[in-house]
Design a protein around this nucleic acid. Sequence first.
DNA 1: CGAAAAAGTTAGCCAGTGCTAACTCAGGAA
DNA 2: TTCCTGAGTTAGCACTGGCTAACTTTTTCG
Lengths: 151, 151
Amino acid sequence: MGIAPCCMVKGKLNLPSKSYQRIRSDHASEVAEDYVEAIADAISERGVCRAMDLVKHFAVTHATVNNTIARLQRDGLVVTEPYQPIDLTAAGRRLATQSRKRHEVVESFLKAMGVSAATAATDSEGIEHHVSKETLNAMKRVLADGWPSNP
Amino acid sequence: MGIAPCCMVKGKLNLPSKSYQRIRSDHASEVAEDYVEAIADAISERGVCRAMDLVKHFAVTHATVNNTIARLQRDGLVVTEPYQPIDLTAAGRRLATQSRKRHEVVESFLKAMGVSAATAATDSEGIEHHVSKETLNAMKRVLADGWPSNP
DNA sequence: CGAAAAAGTTAGCCAGTGCTAACTCAGGAA
DNA sequence: TTCCTGAGTTAGCACTGGCTAACTTTTTCG
């Protein structure tokens, strides 16, 4: 991402007492995941994704979308040319698919837990980026087989 | 936080199609919560909190801790004087207590779900900041009464 | 066709959260 | 007592991701 991860100091891995550094330096990737998900949605719904779709979706300005798309293009997740629609690269599509699956599991899980649809939608947006594979699998298991202690 | 929330444009509320703006502009508050939690921990464990405790805890440099503490002081969460220990204000203590409770619920919930202790610790760090009151209550309910569909 | 509206681009600003480097201050050991 | 070390401070940099403002391009409609 251009900047060294904050757990790297002078090329030497600085083992942290806890796992905070992951949480903070992943912030940019979270935005990347949100964007590729939104782009994939727009393409599947309307055939193409224009910057305006993202402006509406994220409620940010043109300029901000432009900035972010430029960064995603730099990072090899999207391709776009001036005044042309935005498209995903193979890597971008892969990330979008993976993010959406994770998102769906989290949202279904929250709803199954008794959370309202509206809250499940909101909270899953934030939570999905912090759920490890192990926790995701646990959620799938509960959705399929019920809560651990019960039959 | 000094900067206008990103859902405010020229003082007029710009209703978003989804709730992304909350997720992004809350990033600073997440760091604030992590810091006050860590400061409260240090004080309860060692009596005082020095900058070095936070340097070790978060695996960042002195300078970064200094920056962040200055911001927290500006925002009325901590008090400190040059070369003196860091202390929490009433507001800081309140935030720390609340964050820790939420953290504990999320972590217990993950463990009850069958996630390993290590993963529960890591994931709860990230998840706790995105869990609404409703979802937190649902977690408490499941911990107390079991999964909704089961008796 | 031509003008207005919508969409996209560019430039310049700010705040947050990292970093390094170069100080100052406080305390303990020789 | 002096000096070294560790803790704290300050200054200056980079990157992300917001914004406004001013511009160009494209599209749409009368």
